[in-house]
């Protein structure tokens, strides 16, 4: 039981570190949001599951599992919302996409007047 928890914790911390490397290496804001906030989601969830397994000795008396489950559910619900809001704000600020970008359908549709520009509400 404890070995499983340790493996989960190691995978989780490694995933968090990968997210940090992506945060440093990526060329523009949008890719940084992609790797930075979402690889860290899986990393945090894995670490919490591992820590919950590692405390199996006193599951009966103290509430470890419930608090870890609340944390995992909370991260799963709030993280996509906050990163989506952040990326919309970046697009509304007109931060340019990097030179590697292949296609931008949203810009084409704004130019073709299919939809209005996302901005102040």
């Amino acid at each position: 039981m404890e070995i499983i928890g340790q493996i989960f914790l190691l995978i989780g911390s490694f995933s968090l570190m990968t997210a940090a490397v992506g945060l440093l290496r990526m060329p523009d804001v949008y890719n940084r949001v992609q790797t930075g906030t979402k690889a860290s989601t899986l990393g945090a969830i894995m670490s919490f599951i591992g820590l919950a397994f590692m405390t199996y000795e006193n599951w009966g008396e103290v509430n470890w599992v419930g608090r870890f489950l609340v944390l995992v559910i909370f991260i799963l619900i709030t993280n996509p919302v906050s990163s989506h809001v952040l990326m919309r704000a970046a697009y509304a600020m007109k931060i340019p996409l990097s030179k590697l970008t292949v296609v931008d359908k949203l810009k084409e549709d704004i130019n073709n007047k299919v939809l209005e520009e996302p901005k102040d509400e």
């Binding site: 945060l23 940084r32 930075g36 860290s40 952040l86 931060i95």
Partner: peptide, 10 residues
């Protein structure tokens, strides 16, 4: 500023 907020989130 968005880069800084991403760093804060991480």
């Amino acid at each position: 500023i968005v880069d800084r907020v991403v760093g804060f989130d991480s």
